[in-house]
Design a protein around this nucleic acid. Sequence first.
DNA 1: CGGTTTTGACCAGCGC
DNA 2: GCGCTGGTCAAAACCG
Length: 293
Amino acid sequence: MEDREAKNMENSMGISSFPDHNFPIGFFDAPATTGGDGSFFDLLGLQSIFDVPPLPTPPPPPPLTTAPPPESSELSNPPATPNSSSISSSSTEAAAPAGEERVKGEGEDDREEEKKTMKGKKGQKRPREPRFAFMTKSEVDHLEDGYRWRKYGQKAVKNSPFPRSYYRCTSAMCGVKKRVERSSEDPTVVVTTYEGQHTHPSPVVPRGGGGGGGSLSAAAFTAGGGGFSLAPPLTRSKLEIPYFRNMTSAPSLDFDRFSVHRTSTAASPSSSMMRDYGLLQDLVPSEVMREET
DNA sequence: CGGTTTTGACCAGCGC
DNA sequence: GCGCTGGTCAAAACCG
Ligand SMILES: [Zn+2]
């Protein structure tokens, strides 16, 4: 009984449909590394978080049988990357009051679980890299954040039918690591945990270049190492401002430490639903980190 | 040809 | 001391 891996890998989104449906989810705090395998975010109440009126049915299955023919461009690429996410913490209580997200900071209630391992010396070998959990509701697994990642491992997660993928930044000196995993109860939710800070600009230019494609939204949040300050009550209010009406040129927002690049999809042939959801789709960047041993 | 991915094995830390 | 899990590295395979 142990492993049950359900292979859910890439979905087949084939052609039609925009697999880019993301919704805000909650961020969860990482449990203790070994030993503490208790409940992960499995018990999250993510869906409860959405209180946004315009997002009533996020689960619209991508299965649009019909495929928009004119989509020849890559813009509807499945692997596109939409993203919307939020953060919240609390592994036990996930019920976040809809309407407000909470960011967990190290200065807040962080539960110091420090235990051992610190043999006298502190810190030198174990750089405390902050762990940033990023939850995104997406049917697809490829969350394009604007960086190139190389998969260096995959392991099955206990208590989860889906495996966890380990990615590392392909940058030369960027030791940023990324962990991607799907919620066991909500396969529609993808949990991406970023570890480390990027020291190089995103290789992926925010401009698609070509034509049209729009896909993409990048969220760059970096968790400072060694202590950062918690961001004040970050509310989506700010995010609502940036509508993609014509801000294509300056999609960069800076939130205390994170920058959110929202490249909206320029004109898409099938903007039918996009328009409806597109507007409300934003992501709430937050930084949450957990110190590691 | 390069880069990336894939799978297995290995290691380390922690629990008991 | 052993077991367990998580996490990482390595080699090979695969793709563009
Ligand atoms: Zn990087």
